[in-house]
Every structure is written in structure tokens, then in C-alpha cells.
């Protein structure tokens, strides 16, 4: 074990101020936070140049612990706040941390429109299939048939496929990883961070406290093991039949293309408008 001070991870944490964290022991959100830190550390970005904006819920608490410019906003609105910040600080690296309910239910409109604009924000959607902080109500990604505290007879809603939704809405980088495959997840996040345009990483997590308990899925370790056994890479999935893929989580990069980034396009408008003004 490296000593506390020597661990590179701690450079990015508000370590003397805000620990221990609010998450349940065994929660997957901390793994996403670790993956994000490793990605940022490899990129060598200055902490002053990074803004982390979040919404409400368990995931929304992540910025408190991170030593960046951090903003914990209202439920579902992280991307809208982040859009304003990115417009006036286009050189900053703006990261939005959201949960599934946060990004896709109350924030669904902001999610698709940020994707449509292709604004240079990295959206990390931590998908635990449930509203964890409020006690386990069904979310837009709760699988059909699962139980939740507001679906005592089983959920009849269809879950949103986050990556497909992001691609259809216009995001120019879309990837999915799981918290079990933590090293792979940090590589995906790293690629998303350097992508010019709106990038989405669905980080599949779990909530053993609410979703796991009500659906009898065991402990955090059991749920991690389930991810290990029930997820495949995109390459492996290509060789599988639809029946074999039933209930499997597919990991990897699903979409990557180049399109003008929003603030870069707007910078050209400013340039043109100012030039015309000088002429006049």
C-alpha cells in the first residue's frame, strides 16, 4: 500500500474537508469517481480548468468530494447549467455527472437538446436503474418486471436505452461501461473527455440498498458479479444472436463522429458579427 499522501488519486479529492462520503458502503458511484479521476490524471489536466456540474440524487453528490470548480445544481438541470458555463468559458473542461432519473426523467429534455447542439460537455450518466436517494422508486431505466417501492406489482414501463437515445439525439461520442470493468470504464471516460463535442458515457452501476434488496439480488458483491457474468464487449456481442444477447449489458464505444462543436461554431458567429460591426 502506498502511503496516503503518495496516492495520485488524493490529489483530486477534497480529502480533509468532505469525507466520509454520503454513499452506502459498497456503492458503485465511488468506482465511477475513481475511473474519472484516473482518466483526468492520465490527461494531465489542471484542476483549475475543470468544472464538474451535477444534478440531484446520489450521483449528484460526487462534485462535493472533487477538488475542481464544482456546482451541485437542481434535479435534472445539470446540463442546462453546464451549457451556460461552457458558453462563456469554452476552454474549460465541463463534466456533467448525472444519475439515470436525473438525466433521463426530469432532465430528459435537457439531455436530448445538449446532445442535439453537440456542445462540448462530457455527460456521465451513472445508471443504477432506480431512484436510490429517495428510497427505491422506479426510474426511466428500471427493467420491465422489476420491483420498486412504487412498483410493488412489478414495473410495466419500458426502460430507456441510454446510448441509443444519445445517438439518436445527436451526441457525437457514446459509450457504455460497467463499474465491474473499472479499468475499461476509465479508458472510455478518457476518450469521452478528449472528444470535441457532446460525449456520453453510460456507467452501469447498481443499487444494492434499494433495487438489490427489493429484487432479492444480494449484496453489492453479488451485483458486481452479476455485471461480470452478464456483460459482453461490443465485439463479442457482434458475434452473438439476439437470443443470446437477451438481458446482457453490451460495453464499448457505440458511436464516434466529428461534427462542429457548439461553442466553436458560436465563436465563428461572434467573429463574423464583430467584423461586420467594425466595418459598419
Amino acid at each position: 500500500m502506498r502511503r496516503y499522501e503518495e496516492n495520485r488519486m488524493y490529489r483530486y479529492l477534497r480529502r480533509h474537508k468532505k469525507f466520509p462520503n454520503v454513499w452506502c458502503p459498497g456503492c458503485g458511484i465511488g468506482i465511477v469517481m475513481g475511473a474519472l479521476i484516473r482518466a483526468i490524471d492520465r490527461l494531465g489536466w489542471e484542476k483549475d480548468d475543470i468544472a464538474m456540474v451535477s444534478g440531484i440524487g446520489c450521483s449528484g453528490r460526487m462534485p462535493v468530494y472533487m477538488d475542481f470548480n464544482t456546482m451541485h445544481t437542481t434535479h435534472g438541470r445539470a446540463l442546462a447549467f453546464a451549457t451556460g458555463l461552457k458558453m462563456v468559458k469554452p476552454k474549460m473542461h465541463v463534466i456533467a455527472i448525472m444519475g439515470d432519473g436525473d438525466a433521463l426523467a426530469i432532465g430528459g429534455n435537457h439531455f436530448i437538446h445538449a446532445a442535439r447542439r453537440n456542445i462540448g460537455i462530457t455527460a456521465i450518466v451513472i445508471n443504477n436503474s432506480i431512484y436510490g436517494m429517495t428510497g427505491g422508486q422506479y426510474s426511466p431505466t428500471t427493467p420491465t418486471g422489476s420491483l420498486a417501492t412504487t412498483a410493488p406489482y412489478g414495473n410495466i414501463d419500458q426502460p430507456f436505452p441510454i446510448c441509443e437515445l444519445a445517438i439518436a439525439a445527436g451526441a457525437t461520442f457514446v459509450a457504455r461501461g460497467t463499474v465491474y470493468h473499472a479499468v475499461e470504464l476509465d479508458r472510455l471516460i478518457e476518450k469521452a473527455l478528449v472528444h470535441e463535442g457532446f460525449s456520453v458515457v453510460e456507467a452501469v452501476s447498481y443499487c444494492h440498498t434499494t433495487f438489490g434488496r427489493i429484487n432479492k439480488l444480494g449484496t453489492a458483491v453479488d451485483m458486481l458479479r452479476w455485471q461480470k457474468e452478464n456483460s459482453v464487449t461490443r465485439e463479442a456481442a457482434a458475434k452473438m444472436t439476439p437470443e443470446q444477447l437477451q438481458g446482457k449489458i453490451v460495453r464499448g464505444i457505440f458511436h464516434e463522429r466529428e461534427l462542429p462543436e457548439y461553442t466553436a461554431a458560436y465563436a465563428k458567429i461572434i467573429e463574423q458579427a464583430m467584423a461586420a460591426q467594425r466595418k459598419a
Binding site: R77, T83, G84, H110
Partner: peptide, 16 residues
Amino acid sequence: EDEIASIAAVIGASVG
């Protein structure tokens, strides 16, 4: 996309 996002973006810009 709506007024909720508008005021949110305004606050984000002001923080900048």
C-alpha cells in the same frame, strides 16, 4: 429548450 433550462444556463454563465 425551455425556460427552466434558460435560467439554469444564465446562472451557469454568471458563475463563469
